[in-house]
Design a protein around this nucleic acid. Sequence first.
RNA 1: GCACAGGUGGGUGAGUGGUUAAAGCCAACAGACUGUAAAUCUGUCCCUCCUAGCGAGGUACGAAGGUUCGAAUCCUUCCCUGUGCA
Length: 333
Amino acid sequence: MNLPADHGPADPAQPVPLLLVLLGPTASGKTSLSLALAERFAGEIVNCDSGAMVREFEIGTAKPTAAERSRVPHHLFDVVDAAGYVTAGEYARQARRVLRDVSARRRLPIVVGGTGLYLRALLDGLFPGPERSEELRSRLRERAATRGSTYLHRILIHLDPVAAQKIHANDLPKLVRAIEVCLSSREKGSRQKMSQLWQQQGRDPLRGYRIMRLGLDPERQALYKRINQRAREMFDSGLLEETQALLAKYGAEARPLASLGYKQAAQFLRGELSREEAVLAAQQAHRNYAKRQMTWFRREPDVIWLRSFGDDKPLQRKASAHVENFLAADQRT
RNA sequence: GCACAGGUGGGUGAGUGGUUAAAGCCAACAGACUGUAAAUCUGUCCCUCCUAGCGAGGUACGAAGGUUCGAAUCCUUCCCUGUGCA
């Protein structure tokens, strides 16, 4: 906090603003490390976690607490309600806006999160594809429900054989999106295919920032253990009550209620699982999720990996040292 | 102690004489991912070897024997587990 936050705004005369990205699987301690770094380097935290964007979902999303949020500015938490949703494109737009603001204030933006797709949308950008079309989607889903997803795959083979080869016949959401892209561009007469969009390099990357990525990668077994503890604590500290209230307010169909922890809590409330079974299932779901996150992040370029938890003090010192180098390198420019 | 029901790969659970190294599901591990992503999907999954294949060999369905050209599957004994009766 005493450092002169000399990583200025997007002014041609000024050095390029810096962006710190902190990624890692669930329960790896991102919140803790992000707070430490934000306090030390005059930073502001920009959420990159789909679940944490939803209002009223507190316990199960492991958002930073009110106390933690009062220590340093936090952005993009609690921006939609359970009835709404945030697409990757929408996230990227909002996050970029926040980034500019933070940089303009000469503070260090720290993007923190575990949603790989959102991060990619923010940093690399999405191709200029059409937005989702609700009625087309529900029509396609209906077809898939009666005739199987293979039916959609056959449609895609006609529309875009290259894409059809890359998307598995069982992967309903991706088939739907690909068909959506092909059809809606056809309506506009452009006849753009999904596979052509894939080929476009660079898409719409975030420009004007020097980016440093820090990744948390604690030892797998230790991570799983921590996930188990945390999932159980969620149940012990009110997840069931929270879920019940959300269920009453938004109904069972609200998408976030199908997410990690909430899904299992709802199953218990409906009597489908015992409480203990629900806890175990939630733990399992979190572990599986963490693994998928790591699969995604391993592909992320130029990550400085730190092999421990974010609340680990030695790790925090190491992370700080990296950030210091990063800032210093910038001043030399 | 008697009577039933069982003992299958990390788990669950099919299979009841032969194309069975043994379905399916789960876990584990690896991978993909371009607009609801905390979603969705894919691959591997007994061991060893290689020319890496719908390849070769070796182990394997509680244990030991037996029947059979051939057994996870049939018979015998034994050891465990659950339930019922004592």
